[in-house]
Computed example of a mutant assay.
Amino acid sequence: MPDQQRTDHRRADARRNYARILAVAEQEVAAHGAQASLEQIARTAGVGSATVRRHFPTRHALLEAVSRTRIDALCARAHELTGAADSRDALLEWLDDVVAYCVSARGLAAALAYDGAEPDPVHENSCSAALEQAAGPLLERAARDGAVAAGVTVTDLITLAVGVVLATEHHPEPAARADRLFRLAVTGLSPRG
């Protein structure tokens, strides 16, 4: 029985450490973006670097945890827009939300970025996977309606949004610049005839 109590105590302690690390990480990522110092997070949380890495084996895992609430909101927004009258407008409205969230939530674009590695349990991009699943019906409906080119995937759209945000994050007005570039990508370079 004493061993059982000690195990439960460690689990409670681990949960407290996780919550403390995550709270500090949210502040650090908000202040410094995706490159927030893991060592500073550990110091501020009052834990060792090994404890941070035990809970978050990669920087990407930490960014995903920090971004989880925003990702959940984007998924809910995709579900809300699925029944909208104009499928193209609904898809573009959702993508606008993705760009706006990524601009306003430092580190979110990096959490959504695809690193090209084969997914495995430690490196899987759960944020992007959640968005892909949530936005799938929006894109499928827009494609059925002929409002999106054949072969476009949600992965393509997330990559486009992330690329625009990462390219504009150091601009004096990142939100305005990201919106302009995203609109340009959506409408294309040719003037309407």
Rank of each mutant, 00 (worst) to 15 (best):
residue 150 A to K: 02
residue 154 V to R: 02
residue 179 D to Q: 13
residue 135 A to V: 09
residue 154 V to K: 00
residue 118 E to S: 06
residue 166 L to T: 06
residue 138 L to E: 05
residue 142 A to F: 09
residue 151 G to T: 00
residue 150 A to P: 00
residue 100 A to R: 10
residue 125 N to P: 11
residue 183 R to G: 09
residue 119 P to N: 08
residue 128 S to W: 01
residue 161 A to V: 12
residue 149 A to K: 03
residue 98 V to F: 03
residue 103 V to H: 08
residue 129 A to E: 08
residue 136 G to W: 03
residue 139 L to G: 06
residue 152 V to R: 01
residue 181 L to C: 08
residue 107 G to T: 11
residue 151 G to A: 02
residue 164 V to R: 00
residue 109 A to T: 13
residue 104 S to N: 15
residue 153 T to I: 07
residue 127 C to A: 15
residue 148 V to I: 11
residue 99 V to A: 12
residue 98 V to K: 03
residue 166 L to Y: 02
residue 111 A to D: 05
residue 131 L to F: 07
residue 177 R to D: 06
residue 116 G to D: 03
residue 182 F to N: 07
residue 180 R to F: 11
residue 122 V to S: 07
residue 136 G to L: 10
residue 164 V to M: 00
residue 99 V to I: 14
residue 104 S to V: 01
residue 116 G to V: 12
residue 140 E to I: 00
residue 168 T to C: 15
residue 135 A to Q: 06
residue 124 E to Y: 08
residue 172 P to C: 14
residue 114 Y to N: 07
residue 166 L to E: 11
residue 182 F to H: 15
residue 170 H to E: 05
residue 134 A to C: 04
residue 156 D to S: 12
residue 95 L to W: 08
residue 184 L to E: 11
residue 141 R to V: 04
residue 149 A to S: 05
residue 112 L to H: 03
residue 156 D to M: 07
residue 117 A to C: 04
residue 146 G to A: 07
residue 182 F to L: 13
residue 162 V to A: 06
residue 118 E to M: 05
residue 178 A to V: 10
residue 148 V to N: 08
residue 119 P to Q: 13
residue 128 S to Q: 12
residue 176 A to D: 14
residue 149 A to I: 00
residue 129 A to G: 08
residue 181 L to V: 05
residue 169 E to L: 14
residue 106 R to E: 08
residue 159 T to M: 03
residue 123 H to D: 09
residue 147 A to S: 11
residue 125 N to T: 06
residue 173 E to V: 14
residue 176 A to H: 05
residue 150 A to Y: 04
residue 182 F to T: 12
residue 147 A to K: 11
residue 142 A to M: 08
residue 140 E to W: 04
residue 171 H to P: 03
residue 179 D to Y: 01
residue 158 I to A: 10
residue 165 V to W: 10
residue 120 D to I: 02
residue 155 T to E: 05
residue 160 L to G: 01
residue 156 D to Q: 05
residue 178 A to H: 01
residue 184 L to V: 02
residue 118 E to Q: 13
residue 154 V to P: 04
residue 143 A to F: 03
residue 109 A to H: 01
residue 96 D to Q: 04
residue 122 V to K: 03
residue 106 R to A: 13
residue 148 V to W: 08
residue 141 R to S: 14
residue 161 A to G: 13
residue 117 A to W: 05
residue 170 H to Y: 12
residue 103 V to P: 15
residue 181 L to E: 15
residue 117 A to Q: 13
residue 146 G to V: 06
residue 152 V to G: 01
residue 168 T to S: 12
residue 156 D to V: 07
residue 116 G to I: 09
residue 152 V to A: 02
residue 117 A to S: 14
residue 177 R to Q: 14
residue 134 A to H: 02
residue 112 L to E: 03
residue 121 P to H: 07
residue 148 V to P: 01
residue 174 P to I: 12
residue 129 A to I: 04
residue 174 P to A: 12
residue 143 A to Q: 14
residue 95 L to K: 02
residue 136 G to R: 01
residue 101 Y to Q: 13
residue 111 A to C: 10
residue 123 H to Y: 02
residue 96 D to I: 03
residue 129 A to W: 05
residue 160 L to N: 02
residue 135 A to H: 07
residue 135 A to Y: 04
residue 124 E to V: 14
